[in-house]
Amino acid sequence: MEWAPVIISLKTASVSILITFAIGTWLAYLVCRIRKDSVRSTIDAILTLPLVLPPTVAGFLLLYIFGSYRPLGELLGEIGVRIVFNWQATVIAAVVISFPLMYRSAKAAFVQVDPIFMQAARTIGLSERRIVFRILLPLAAPGLASGGILAFSRGLGEFGATALIAGNIPGVTRTMPLAIYSAVVGGRTEEAYRYVVILILVSFIFVWLLSFLTDRRTTRQRSGERTPRL
């Protein structure tokens, strides 16, 4: 068994979660601040779509953007950047597919923060920036952490969009899910079995961590004062 797919998958998931965490949290914050209900719902729906659409749809759209013969892809190609069939493409696919999990978790976490804290902070003249970093984010931390873990695990398992834009190059873009698929259709059941076990183990550890974190949070909430929800 080759270890390359395991390393590629972990590398992809690790880099993509940094991007997903930052963008997901930031967009969730921005969407929460939109006052107009119809606008907010529309943007919310668009940002959630990759969660319900098959990854092949996301992969197809990504090809439309970054494909070698598409405007942006050609522009990038002229400055020597090739997205498709490179390792970076596995990260892009993982970010797009895991993004909604981060975004929705962050949004739920922000909504649950009692606005009275922010109002109190505003009355004593704290800047909006400080309110976000000192009050909102720490209070939403457990929700953000669970979103991050979910997104990381999803990125680790990304298959459909990756196959479309990153290809299946052993040692470069062949992630664990692609290695499993190639092994199964190639009749190498033993090899597939090993990757499956590794993938299940890693995913289990992270999802267990998630349950552990959320359980702890709810018990603490139950024992302490119940925070009113919006």
């Binding site: 892809g73 069939f85 834009i165 190059i169 052993p170």
Partner: peptide, 23 residues
Amino acid sequence: VESTASMGTNVTEVLNWVAEGSA
């Protein structure tokens, strides 16, 4: 070739990769 080629699991995949210019 083996160390750089993308290995499609069916012929359609190979065709699409080439048609899109990915390969």
